[in-house]
Nucleic acid binder design. Structure first.
Length: 204
DNA sequence: GTTCTAGAAC
DNA sequence: GTTCTAGAAC
């Protein structure tokens, strides 16, 4: 017998079913169109574009991209140090403007899913309905997330970025662990309940 | 990157 | 029984 299909919508549906604009090319090229999307683009200067992450994983989550097309971290050379310093400086100013008392991190995914080099600016509350799975969590709270300052330091010291790619697969599959107190949590819902107990304010 | 959903886990 | 995860998507 055919039962009525359930209209199952998440209670926190803010992350679901965004208006599907026509995307050209593979999904991994999505940042290219996001850069020009007035809904997402919040600022730009002569060197970079700043957009909101389309699926923010925290209260504040932005992406900063160079206007010149840099594919990934491996493409970086000493010539890019000034550009990356500019990106980090702009990112920190944006964080301060967004909420001066909130903790933020500034960095890059070791193996990003999306093409075009982009620095994440993300508040450390990780309070968002778009944060849904282990990969999301571990990509921002393990060494998979590489601080901008570390990237710049490597470029200055060695002229390129070297990352131990053999460890990344394992990092994303690690057990869920609170980034503040290191407590292990069994599930994503339990983790999300737990991390609400911490303060992410710089002032205490 | 996301959506969808089978079946594991409880 | 429901909750939750993890893999396919041509």
């Amino acid at each position: 017998m055919a039962t009525k299909s359930v209209q199952k919508r998440e209670a926190d549906g803010k992350c679901d079913a965004p208006p599907q604009k026509k995307q050209f090319g593979h999904w991994s090229q999505g940042l290219k169109s996001s850069m020009d999307d007035p809904e997402l683009r919040i600022d730009a200067d002569e060197k970079i574009v700043i957009i909101k992450d389309k699926y923010p994983k925290a209260k504040f989550h932005f992406l900063l991209l160079p206007k010149i097309s840099i594919p990934n971290l491996k493409s970086l050379t000493k010539e890019h140090v000034e550009l990356l310093q500019h990106i980090e400086k702009k990112g920190k100013a944006l964080a301060k403007k967004s909420d001066p008392n909130l903790e933020f991190r500034f960095g890059y995914h070791a193996v990003p899913s999306m093409s075009l080099l982009h620095m994440h600016v993300i508040s450390q509350d990780f309070d968002s309905p778009c944060l849904k799975n282990k990969k999301h969590w571990n990509s921002f709270t393990t060494e998979y997330f590489v601080d901008s300052s570390d990237i710049i330091k490597q470029l200055q010291e060695r002229g390129r970025v070297e990352l131990d790619t053999s460890r990344f697969q394992e990092m994303l599959k690690r057990n869920l662990r609170c980034h503040v107190c290191k407590k292990d949590l069994p599930t994503i819902p339990a983790l999300k309940t737990h991390i609400k107990l911490h303060s992410y304010s710089k002032k205490s």
